[in-house]
Simulated scan of single mutants.
Amino acid sequence: MGDFEQILQTSWPILLMIVIFYFMLYRPQKKQQKERNELLSSLKKGQKVVTIGGIYGEIVSLTEDHVMLQVADKVEMRFARTAIANIANKK
């Protein structure tokens, strides 16, 4: 029984670091990834969005992989769906 207690005393800092790693790095990253997937799956025609490169546009058409944005009158650009950063604020 003494060996077990000694192992526990020497390994608790490692266990503590694993718990801290989980709550400070892994869990927030998974939450952010889930929110991003929800954003990309909720895109609809007519929404105003901003791309990762900072281009503002309105969604004209959608496919599973691509988004067609109207960025000016008679100017449409095709982007990968993953290039959408967020939905533009409606003010």
Rank of each mutant, 00 (worst) to 15 (best):
I55L: 11
G46K: 06
V71W: 01
Q29I: 07
E35Q: 13
S61V: 04
M77Q: 10
H66G: 07
Y56R: 14
R27T: 13
L39M: 07
V50N: 00
Q33K: 12
P28V: 10
Q70F: 05
L62S: 06
G57M: 12
L16N: 05
L16A: 10
G57R: 10
G2F: 07
S42N: 06
N37W: 04
K34E: 08
T10Y: 01
L39V: 09
F23Y: 09
L40Y: 02
Q47I: 13
A80F: 04
L25G: 11
I14P: 00
K91G: 15
I20C: 07
K30I: 11
A80S: 12
T63C: 10
N86T: 13
G54F: 05
L15M: 09
K91P: 05
F4E: 03
T10M: 09
S41R: 11
K90W: 06
I20F: 07
F79A: 01
Q70T: 05
K31R: 12
M1R: 00
V60C: 02
V19R: 13
Y56M: 15
V60T: 10
G46D: 08
A88K: 03
N86M: 15
E38F: 05
A80C: 05
V67R: 03
H66N: 11
V71A: 06
M17F: 12
W12N: 14
L69S: 02
M1K: 09
R78C: 11
A72D: 09
W12G: 12
M17C: 11
V49D: 07
K34Y: 07
N37P: 00
S11P: 01
V60M: 07
S11F: 05
Q29A: 15
N89T: 15
S61H: 03
M77R: 04
I18E: 05
K34S: 13
K90R: 14
T63N: 11
Y26P: 00
M68I: 14
A88P: 03
L15D: 04
I14H: 04
E5P: 00
L39W: 03
T51C: 02
E58L: 01
T51H: 00
E64M: 08
Y26W: 04
Q29Y: 09
D3I: 05
I87P: 02
P28E: 04
I52L: 10
F79R: 00
E5Y: 01
V60P: 06
